[in-house]
Simulated assay, not measured.
Amino acid sequence: MVKFSEQVHRDTKKLWQKSFDHPFIKEMVTGELPEDKFKFYVIQDYHYLKVFDQLHLKLAQQLPGPQRQVVEDYMQNLTVDELEARNHTFQKLGISQDEWAQTPLAPANYNYLNHMRHSLATSPAVGLASFLPCPWLYVELATHWQHANSPVEVYDDFFQTYEEAAQDKSTVPMIELMDQLATQADLKERATMARAFVRSSYYELQFWQMAYHQQQW
């Protein structure tokens, strides 16, 4: 039987490829991306990571001991490092905490976060399926562009952050947990998990688009 993770990974292959090839990423690699677009991305991503962290804490609270520990270990090892990396990027770009706090969520970010909130409210399994495209896609993004060396230091740091995450394999236990929850789910919940995963993959692509066009309400 095909693992659930293999199924949804196959189903979202074309969407993920569009993320790998998005102009935002390609222009980071070449150094042509205007800094204001990257600043827009970083601020929105920081908003996203704050909620992402909170949602994982809520997910952990809904799981039994061993499964809860997988989520808690993941959060300790990855999200804290990402938030610290974003703070370092803020300093390099001259972004103050006041500027971040006063910047509202862009439409695509707002929709993505609400999608994950709704997914977690449906069930822990559906919630996890909606969370995983973000870190898993970034791991593959880092692998896809592993030989890229942007001439812009802050962009090069961005790729190195995710390359380090890819090397430490921190996403693997979470993928395994999703497969475990999928085997425990009935057909209806499993289908809902798959939809949540695909929709998050769509929102990942929209996140690049949002930043590239500095989307406003």
Rank of each mutant, 00 (worst) to 15 (best):
Q160L: 15
L33T: 07
S19V: 08
A125L: 03
F52E: 09
A142K: 08
Q214I: 13
A194D: 03
E140A: 08
L49A: 04
Q91D: 14
E153F: 03
M174S: 04
A142M: 09
T161F: 12
T89L: 15
K18E: 02
L59N: 00
K14A: 03
D98Q: 14
T192N: 13
A121N: 09
N111Y: 14
T161L: 15
F207G: 14
A211R: 01
A121H: 10
L128C: 04
I43Q: 00
E164T: 12
Q91W: 15
P104F: 06
C134K: 04
F131H: 12
V152G: 09
A148D: 11
A191P: 08
A125W: 06
R10V: 02
R86A: 09
Q184R: 05
W208Y: 10
R10A: 03
E153P: 03
Q76F: 12
Q216D: 02
S5D: 02
Q206M: 15
F20G: 00
A142T: 06
I95V: 15
F131I: 01
T143W: 05
Y110Q: 12
I175K: 11
L132M: 11
Y162S: 04
A182C: 04
K92R: 14
L187E: 15
K39L: 08
A166D: 06
D186Y: 07
I95N: 08
H118C: 02
E99F: 10
M116I: 14
W100N: 02
E153Y: 08
H9M: 06
T143L: 13
Q216M: 13
Q209E: 13
Q180C: 00
L93F: 09
K188P: 08
A182W: 01
D157R: 08
T79K: 03
Q214G: 05
E176P: 03
P107T: 09
D36I: 08
A60R: 07
V71M: 04
Q91A: 15
Q44D: 00
L78D: 07
W16F: 07
Q160A: 09
S200T: 13
A211P: 07
V152I: 14
M210Q: 11
A142D: 04
E204I: 12
Q209I: 02
H47Y: 05
K26L: 13
A60S: 12
T122I: 03
E189N: 02
D98K: 13
L128H: 01
E204Y: 10
F20Q: 04
H144T: 04
T143A: 14
Q61A: 13
A185F: 01
E153N: 07
V42A: 09
A121L: 14
V71Y: 06
S123G: 11
D36W: 02
P23R: 03
K37P: 04
D11Y: 01
C134V: 10
H118Y: 11
L205H: 09
H115D: 00
H147P: 00
K188S: 11
I95C: 11
Y155M: 03
P107L: 15
L105W: 12
Y112N: 08
Q216N: 06
S123L: 10
I95F: 05
K26V: 06
K14C: 00
E27F: 01
M1T: 09
W16I: 11
R195D: 11
K37Q: 12
Q102M: 08
E82G: 05
H213G: 07
Y202W: 13
Q146L: 10
Q209S: 13
H115K: 15
E27W: 00
R195H: 11
S130A: 15
P66G: 10
F20M: 13
W145M: 05
G127P: 12
G31D: 10
